[in-house]
Amino acid sequence: MLEGKFEEASLLKKVIESIKDSVKLCNFNCSQSKGITVQAIDDSRVLLIALKIDSGSFQEFRCDRDLVLGLDLESLSKILKQGNNEDYLTIIAEDSPDSLLVVFEDKKKDRISEFSLKLMDIDSDVLTIDDMEHDCSITMPAYEFAKIARDMKTLSESLQIIITKDSVKFNAEGQIGSGSIILKPHTDMEKPDESIKIELNQPVVLTFGAKYLNDIVKATALSSTVTIKLTDKAPALFEYRLPSGYLRYYLAPKFDD
């Protein structure tokens, strides 16, 4: 049996809102040691999502036996919208479940709402992702990266990221013209999450689909910072930290035709 209680429903709501436009169906793997893990790849095989909600993200977590919950995220999203952000949220499943029970508890009122979501058998490709060495890593405010991704998409369907020791440059060239945004590393002592940190083994220039970057920044509400790890001619890793766990996106680059 699985029983996981979140202190606030908002965490799972935000996680599902972050991924449901990229993948519609996915398996939630549940175990006592790892909590909930998900690996899902979008239909175009360009964007991969790796989610880990550790048991530490729950107020209470028990999973007697390893379970796989096949979920339609659009349907789960509909059910999660029934609860308030501040409600306790408990998810419950039997050992061989055909449905997931979702329970909201209002902390102030005596109101408990229960929903049952039908589960599905989902065949999914699982990819092996080895721990990669990266040429460089940038940590920056999540909202700032989101603004760049959204703004630059209006200029071009591709966004180039150029990292050097002294700066990170976002470059877009489109039909109406071109634009670039240059950020330099700095440390904000009072608000550390406002800092921009660059770690560099070697400079990197990579180009990504603006559409996919805009899917990724849907996770902005989850974390105040985003870490972007880039390697020449390889998929990029975008990581949003959860209170205990992470949401990672792996995005395949575009190449000069």
Partner: peptide, 14 residues
């Protein structure tokens, strides 16, 4: 101008 690559070219399917 740019061609989108696939993750399958980089990661091995199990």
């Amino acid at each position: 101008k740019y061609k989108q690559s696939s993750l399958l070219a980089f990661f091995n399917a199990k």
